[in-house]
């Protein structure tokens, strides 16, 4: 019994300590962003690495998700003779939910894990320590540009995901199942609200980008500098990002669309 309480106490204490470290780390990272602005090359390189290189996985996933939405939506809507509403159903599902959430999950798996492994290995090979000894702050030089790149890339990737998804829905609905082309687009245009749907979706993806970049970079920076430590940190990045994205999605959806 005592052992259980002791372990519980230790776990609680270490969780709070980690929360404190991650908050200080975030503060340090955010203050470093001011130093990134005058050096756009650092940022562009990272946007390429975390954003542009995620382009393919986002495009292909978006296409398939849109195609599945087209199929499922058609069979459900056709029961009510409402196939013409397929466009609005596909677009609303994508811009409100699937675009921000799935692209953030993919981003965490593709770019977040890579960021954690990169930073963890830089720590293990004393590159961060070496930088400190060269009087260069590794958080400002290494972490802040990556954080900003993740933060900028996620909403753009989510927009790409949604756009390609709509094309996928169109391909299946109009191209294969014979939904009227004009109705598909017109219903979408009439019923998707810029403020309600698109802006809220963008806000979600901005929040997810912030959180995933924070988790990925912190886990790498806080990793135990061994092969096993880095591998565990990479796993934690993916798991914690997924939990955070899905949990935050519920909270944001409740705030934006619910009457809670």
């Amino acid at each position: 019994m005592f052992e259980f309480l002791e372990n519980l106490g230790k776990a609680t204490r270490s969780s709070f300590a980690k929360l404190g470290r991650s908050t200080l780390f975030l503060g340090h990272t955010l203050t470093g962003i001011g130093d990134v602005i005058p050096r756009p090359n650092l940022l562009i390189k990272q946007i390429y690495s975390v954003g542009v290189l995620s382009f393919l996985i986002i495009t292909i996933s978006g296409l398939f998700v849109g195609m599945v939405l087209g199929l499922q939506g058609f069979y459900t809507l056709s029961d009510f003779g409402a196939e013409e509403s397929l466009g609005v159903m596909v677009a609303a599902s994508l811009v409100r939910e699937l675009g921000p959430v799935v692209s953030a999950l993919l981003f965490a798996g593709r770019a977040g894990s890579a960021l954690t492994a990169e930073i963890g290995l830089m720590k293990a090979t004393e590159q961060l320590s070496g930088m400190e000894m060269m009087a260069v702050d590794p958080v400002k030089r290494i972490i802040s540009p990556r954080f900003l790149a993740g933060f900028i890339s996620t909403p753009l990737l989510a927009a790409l995901f949604s756009a390609v998804g709509v094309m996928g829905g169109h391909l299946v609905g109009v191209g294969m199942l014979g939904v009227d082309d004009g109705a598909f687009w017109a219903q979408m245009q009439a019923n998707i609200d810029f403020q309600e749907d698109i802006i809220n979706g963008v806000i979600k993806s901005i929040v997810f980008g912030f959180v995933v970049s924070w988790i990925a970079l912190f886990e790498g920076y806080d990793a135990i500098p061994t092969a096993e430590g880095v591998s565990r940190a990479t796993t934690r990045t993916v798991v914690n990002s997924a939990f955070s994205i899905l949990g935050l999605d519920f909270i944001l959806t409740a705030l934006m669309f619910g009457d809670i």
């Binding site: 590159q127 320590s129 070496g130 000894m133 060269m134 009087a135 260069v136």
Partner: peptide
């Protein structure tokens, strides 16, 4: 620290830069 150099056991070179850029790193910073 700008007046102290340190040579780490592993070298601690930045792995995403070539030799030239590694040596140029402190000068550029």
């Amino acid at each position: 620290r700008k007046r102290m150099g340190m040579l780490f056991q592993s070298g601690a070179l930045l792995t995403d830069m070539n030799v030239f850029d590694n040596v140029a790193f402190p000068l550029r910073e």
